[in-house]
């Protein structure tokens, strides 16, 4: 316990914003969500070593076997099997890989694009700002999921397509937030001084503005991970995500959809995995935002 608390306080002091006692931090930080997220990340990283069965291994004589506490269930398949006899637990563990990788990739890509454009818009102002912000407004109101479906049909679904489309949707939120911050930052003395000292715009943006907006980028990113997992699952559910046979949580819910009367576990367990992980990320994101930057509460 001590070491993780120490780590957290070190992070807090690094950002220099948290001024509450150790005990308060420890009591108020959501332990259970943190454990669930760690579990999901571990599952994604170690999937190939810890799965009890091959995620794609067919086992037709055990097809649609219930979970361990139902009639005919056994510890061999703790969460039951799907209609091809594949082990649900193993597929959920393997499915964590796609969820985590896509979420991480999307958030990183969107944060880089959005922060860059937001900084440029805020710093230069004028028509550059107008063009970028009109684009942002247009994007935010756009039915992103439909564009993703169009891409899936025309280009064909793959991890790259899913990550690109999702980042394409998400960058606008970063751009809007960062632009607002840069607008107020650039009026501050240290930016004026940097300009007087002959700093080029590129240098001012990269080494003076960027470090000051990083905090907001981190807060927004933790809040967007849950969104990214949900959208990936939605795309997979609709058959426009990472294509089979790779197991995805959304795809698994879709596979069991027609069988919920007779074999509810095929859909419900992967769905519960999505719900739990997204809920955990959202709770942690809320908490990190409150600790680091209460003024972002409206996000």
């Amino acid at each position: 316990m001590q070491s993780s608390t120490r780590g957290f306080v070190a992070v807090s002091e690094f950002f220099g914003k948290v001024r509450i006692g150790l005990g308060a931090v420890w009591r108020s930080f959501p332990i259970l969500p943190l454990l669930i997220v760690l579990l999901a990340v571990a599952a994604a990283l170690l999937a190939d070593f810890i799965v009890p069965h091959g995620p794609d291994a067919l086992n037709l004589e055990h097809a649609r076997q219930g979970w361990v506490f139902s009639e005919g269930g056994s510890w061999t398949f703790p969460l039951g099997t799907d209609s091809l006899g594949r082990d649900i637990l193993s597929r959920i563990i393997k499915g964590a890989q796609v969820s985590m990788a896509v979420a991480a990739g999307t958030v990183l890509l969107a944060a880089s694009i959005g922060t860059t454009l937001g900084t440029i818009a805020g710093y230069f102002g004028g028509w550059v700002d107008t063009v970028i912000m009109r684009l942002v407004d247009g994007w935010l109101a756009f039915p992103a999921i439909l564009i993703a479906l169009v891409f899936a049909v025309t280009v064909g679904p793959s991890v790259t397509v899913v990550v690109s489309v999702m980042a394409l949707i998400l960058w606008a939120r970063y751009a809007r937030l960062i632009r607002g911050e840069v607008l107020s930052l650039k009026e501050r003395d240290f930016i004026a001084l940097a300009r007087v000292a002959g700093g080029s715009p590129l240098r001012i943006m990269a080494s003076h503005l960027l470090p000051n907006v990083l905090n907001s980028v981190i807060v927004l990113s933790t809040l967007q991970v849950g969104w990214a997992i949900t959208v990936e699952a939605t795309l997979s559910f609709l058959g426009a995500g990472v294509p089979p046979p790779t197991p995805t949580w959304g795809g698994m819910v879709a596979e069991g959809r027609d069988l919920i009367r007779s074999a509810w576990w095929i859909s419900v367990f992967p769905g519960a995995a999505i719900g739990l992980v997204v809920l955990s990320f959202n709770l942690i994101g809320d908490r990190i935002r409150d600790l680091l930057d209460p003024k972002l509460r409206a996000l």
Binding site: I260, R261, V268, V278
Partner: peptide, 22 residues
């Protein structure tokens, strides 16, 4: 509210069908 935001509709839909229809 947090729960509602975290559960994607395709999953709450499945749950709702199980509870109210099945």
């Amino acid at each position: 509210a947090v729960l509602g935001q975290s559960l994607p509709p395709f999953f709450t839909g499945v749950l709702a069908i199980i509870v109210f229809s099945v």
